[in-house]
């Protein structure tokens, strides 16, 4: 393993901003992995740190197969994480919406450009991101449907679900999107948490990544062979949106099977506790996404049922 500083930026007063890379193996650029790009992606950085730990052990035991190079970048934004901000603290811009970056542009465009220069050209790109709508997901692989995607390879992760999302215009500046445009097969792995560490779903994510490596002949690794993945279209899910503002009183959790008409949650009046509305499952299926905050506004996405 070689630990390298991939990018450094001086700041007016605080410590220098550094992006570290952990490089394993030699030869072909096979996989690049990117963890926390936002300052609150604690779970995502934790997953990467565990991957680094596992890869150090695999390399020590000569289990990384020849002519495969793996680059892991656990954190692209230590500045924001250290001061509990989600985005770049100076101007609140999101590095993950600056790709492919511009090396003569604004600060976060330069960071994105420097990162992209390091991670482009790999055969596979794996990112551990968080979603712009906050809540809990069933762990899954998310692929932007750009026409360049390799859905079959995504099945090698052995996670139960692979979700295809049609990119909106605002998705065209994501790392995942630009990886694909530059001919890297890009996969985003969503685990259950963001700001907190959820050990079980974190382990699911790093083991799925090692499983992918093994099935692609990058490492020797014997673990559980995983699930047979179902490929789903994001637009095929049924959305449940709140009709009122108030306390969110959930009756089901992520991963639970529900039948059409089952009670999913109640919205309670925040002053007198009375029930303002009861939300029921629009279809029979699995709860794929759930809102996690204790309060909700009207028109908030509370559940997505698959």
């Amino acid at each position: 393993m070689k630990k390298e500083i991939l990018f450094e930026l001086k700041s007016p007063y605080r410590d220098s901003f550094k992006i570290y890379g952990y490089r394993f193996g030699e030869g072909e650029h096979t996989v690049a992995i990117v963890g926390a790009i936002r300052g609150d992606e604690i779970q995502q950085q934790f997953i990467c740190s565990q991957l680094v730990k596992n890869l150090i052990d695999l390399e020590k035991n000569n289990l990384i197969l020849p002519n495969h190079q793996i680059l892991v970048i656990p954190s692209v934004n230590p500045f924001s994480m250290n001061i509990h901000k989600r985005f770049w603290a100076m101007d609140n811009t999101d590095i993950n919406r600056m790709f492919p970056g511009y090396d003569k542009g604004e600060t976060t465009q330069r960071i994105a450009a420097a990162l992209f220069e390091q991670v482009k050209g790999y055969q596979y790109g794996i990112q551990f991101p968080s979603f712009y709508i906050r809540g809990e997901f069933i762990p899954h692989i998310r692929i932007l449907d750009t026409g360049h995607q390799d859905t079959e390879s995504a099945k090698c992760f052995g996670l139960p679900y692979i979700m295809l999302r049609k990119p909106s215009s605002f998705d065209t500046t994501l790392l995942n999107y630009n990886w694909q445009i530059w001919e890297t097969q890009a996969y985003s792995i969503y685990s259950s948490a963001t700001e907190q560490i959820d050990k079980d779903s974190a382990k699911l994510a790093w083991v799925a990544t090692l499983r992918f490596f093994a099935k692609k002949g990058i490492i020797q690794y014997s673990g559980h062979s995983g699930f047979i993945s179902s490929v789903i279209d994001e637009e095929s899910m049924a959305n449940v949106v709140s009709e009122n503002g108030g306390f969110f009183y959930p009756k089901v959790t992520v991963g639970q099977d529900v039948r059409k008409g089952d009670l999913l949650a109640k919205i309670l009046d925040p002053y007198d506790g009375s029930v303002l509305s009861e939300l029921t499952a629009p279809v029979s299926g699995v709860v794929f996404f759930a809102h996690k905050q204790p309060i909700v506004s009207q028109n908030t996405m509370l559940y997505r049922v698959l």
Binding site: N244, V296, Q298
Partner: peptide, 11 residues
């Protein structure tokens, strides 16, 4: 006009 969690509306 959208109800916020506690009493107010976003208008």
């Amino acid at each position: 006009s959208v109800a916020l969690p506690v009493g107010e509306h976003l208008k």
